[in-house]
């Protein structure tokens, strides 16, 4: 464990808590893409298949349970909670996220470190996580006034992977044979997808104006 990865995990945790806070306290999911939440639930379900077979540490197991639990409960809230579901804007959240799942699965079958079920699922979860934010970014461009919590949620979600890139650089230089091209390239693509969001987020913070993405 290094400071970059720990900071990344805490940032990721913070993004999930911000979202749960928004949904649980103000009982609203306005501006939140259910599609992105469903993709993230799938990412965690396919990435943490080793939850009960490989024990790494209490921290690792605890965080996996938190990410699994929170992502599925957020999907449940937006789909079935009688109050929250009313604020879900399904007419705007129209990204065909199934078109993301299949290419990621095919790519995982073609490009992976080892052709085993567990490894292909893990690789699939990496490719899917890289593009999972797309429905949310599209929704933000359609949502005129982005509320603070939603903006903070997306920012933290992007920042966590950027911190992971620093972690990979650190591990590359400190651990012999630590090379994971698939993870690194997926993580880089994922972070680059946030580039323009980060730009507008920073601008809105610097000029102290409401966050707004150009359509």
């Amino acid at each position: 464990m290094n400071i970059f990865r720990f900071a990344g995990d805490m940032t990721h945790l913070a993004s999930v808590l911000v979202l749960l806070l928004k949904i649980h306290t103000i009982k609203s999911c306005a501006g939140i893409s259910l599609k992105t939440q469903e993709l993230y639930a799938l990412v965690f379900a396919t990435r943490y298949l080793d939850l009960f077979t490989d024990y790494i540490s209490l921290y690792n197991t605890l965080m996996k349970l938190i990410f699994l639990g929170s992502s599925f409960s957020i999907v449940w809230y937006i789909r079935y909670h009688k109050i929250v579901r009313r604020s879900y804007d399904k007419d705007q959240d129209t990204f065909r996220h199934y078109f993301l799942v299949l290419p990621c699965l095919l790519l995982a079958l073609l490009i992976n470190e080892k052709f085993t079920f567990r490894e292909v699922m893990w690789t699939f979860s990496l490719y899917l996580e890289a593009v999972a934010i797309l429905p949310q970014l599209v929704l933000l461009q359609r949502t005129r006034n982005i509320d603070n919590l939603t903006g903070q949620y997306v920012f933290l979600l992007g920042a966590y992977r950027a911190l992971y890139i620093l972690n990979w650089i650190y591990r590359y230089f400190t651990e012999p044979h630590y090379v994971h091209w698939i993870t690194w390239i997926s993580g880089l693509v994922q972070t680059l997808l946030y580039a323009d969001f980060f730009y507008y987020y920073f601008q809105s913070w610097k000029n102290n104006v409401k966050l707004e993405l150009p359509a």
Partner: peptide
């Protein structure tokens, strides 16, 4: 062949 190291990252 040795078992690949477990994935220690989240």
């Amino acid at each position: 062949n040795p078992k690949p190291p477990p994935k220690d990252e989240l």
